[in-house]
């Protein structure tokens, strides 16, 4: 990898890919009771790097990114995020959660709060920002995801695509350094996928470090620096997207690609 200055193309490797690591996962294992979901995961993510994780269902890809902000606990190995190691120490978990945003497949907006309240909630209560400032800030992020006009509505009144964009705004409002996306478009109707991907692409262009679990291969090609293929709880293959799609090494990767590309 080179260390050139960043170029305008979004698919170039990030300038710091061989330098500063923002996430380091070392020999990490996780079990759900007897079930070994993640086996010896080693992964380094550079600042500004964008990674797409794909693989068949049950391969552990969602669990992997959920371990990064401790929604799931790992049992072996180490995970450190921006220099802080994830342990049982609640303080560390809080620090990491305030730096890592996550967007869920099911949006998980708070249905009893309006869109604006959803977005402004964490800045007010976690960052102790004055309400007026937090709401002004929230409006800025709602504009960024292109739904400022829905601010006074409740999530239940929005379409899935709009809800997911609110969820993205809610995460961005906390100024995270890393964004995790857990199948952000899987619960959406086909015509709404694009509006969410557009927001994500724009976010990618702004230089955000992103880990995205998705099967949107167009998105992977357009923005990812690396594509990681997981199966059976292991990382099977990781490559830049073009190489990954054109020249997969492993049989399992080939089989998976043939299944998702020719349906």
């Amino acid at each position: 990898m080179n260390q050139d200055t960043p170029t305008s193309s979004t698919t170039e490797a990030p300038a710091t890919s061989s330098g500063e690591k923002i996430i380091t996962i070392n020999g990490m294992h996780k079990w759900f009771d007897d079930f070994h979901v993640l086996k010896n995961i080693n992964l380094e993510v550079g600042r500004g790097e964008r990674i797409v994780i794909c693989g068949p269902s049950g391969s552990g890809k969602s669990t992997l990114i959920r371990c990064i902000n401790r929604l799931e606990e790992h049992q072996q190995g180490t995970i450190s995020v921006d220099g802080t190691e994830l342990t049982h120490d609640l303080k560390n978990i809080e620090i990491i959660r305030s730096e890592v945003g996550i967007v869920f497949q099911q949006f998980n907006l708070f249905p009893h709060l309006t869109v604006l309240e959803n977005v402004a909630l964490a800045p007010i209560w976690v960052r102790k920002m004055p309400r007026a400032e937090a709401e002004g800030n929230a409006m800025k992020y709602l504009e960024r995801v292109k739904i400022p006009e829905q601010a006074a509505k409740y999530p239940g009144q929005l379409s899935g695509g709009q809800q997911q964009r609110v969820a993205i705004a809610r995460s961005l409002c906390m100024n995270p350094r890393i964004m995790l996306f857990d199948e952000p478009t899987s619960a959406l109707d086909p015509e709404m996928i694009k509006e969410v991907l557009d927001v994500m692409i724009e976010l990618a262009e702004s230089g955000m470090t992103m880990l995205v679990v998705t099967h949107e291969m167009g998105f992977a090609t357009a923005v990812a620096h690396r594509v990681i293929f997981m199966d059976g709880g292991e990382i099977i293959e990781e490559k830049p997207p073009r190489e990954f799609f054109e020249n997969p090494e492993h049989e399992r990767t080939k089989l998976f690609l043939s299944q998702i590309l020719h349906h």
């Binding site: 902000n69 929604l71 809080e94 959660r97 305030s98 890592v100 945003g101 996550i102 869920f104 099911q106 998980n108 907006l109 708070f110 909630l121 964490a122 209560w125 976690v126 809610r170 995460s171 906390m174």
Partner: peptide, 12 residues
């Protein structure tokens, strides 16, 4: 998901 969203935003 409601618990997870609250946790992930850093709410105590």
């Amino acid at each position: 998901g409601q618990y997870e969203a609250a946790d992930s935003l850093g709410l105590t």
